[in-house]
Amino acid sequence: MAKILIADDDAILTEMLRFRLEGARHQVVTAADGMEALEKAGSEDPDLIILDSMMPVVAGPEVLARLRDDPQTARTPIVMLTARDGEKDVVAALKSGANEYMTKPFIPKELMVRIQKLLVRAA
């Protein structure tokens, strides 16, 4: 079982992800904006973070950069899960330290497999 932080302002998507992750016996913490994501990443010490790019208060790319600059979260696996599918967005996120990049809409089973692989690697 892992603790996973979902940082996304889409409440319906967040609940769908929570349902799937809890069904796989993971503990889920959520954040609805970038600032809350940064706060919870520090206080909850998640094993993995699912991060949207387009969020209020602090955008996903800035959250990603701050997480990678913080020694506490620098090695935490991060999956960018976003509607932004441009080559520039994908390359920038991967260069900034995202471990995976998936675009919405996505295949839930594929996301679960990618999460599991990242958790195994991080263990």
Rank of each mutant, 00 (worst) to 15 (best):
A37D: 05
K95G: 13
E87S: 12
L21P: 03
A31D: 00
R25C: 14
K104S: 01
L67H: 04
E110H: 09
R114I: 03
L48D: 04
A7K: 01
D9R: 02
R84M: 12
K117Y: 14
I107W: 14
A31V: 02
D9V: 02
A37C: 08
P56W: 09
E15P: 11
T30C: 09
I107E: 15
V28D: 10
V58S: 02
R75D: 15
D47C: 13
I50M: 05
A98G: 05
A2G: 03
I78M: 13
K88R: 12
R75A: 15
A2C: 08
L67A: 04
V63N: 01
E87F: 11
E36T: 13
V91A: 08
E15A: 13
I115E: 01
A122N: 07
G42D: 05
V57Q: 10
E62K: 04
G97F: 05
M35Y: 13
T30S: 11
I50C: 06
E100L: 12
A122D: 09
E44H: 10
A41H: 00
T14E: 08
K3W: 08
P108E: 10
V90A: 03
R114S: 03
M54T: 12
D69E: 15
A98T: 07
G23P: 03
V91W: 09
L5W: 06
M112F: 12
M35T: 11
E44V: 10
E15K: 15
A31N: 01
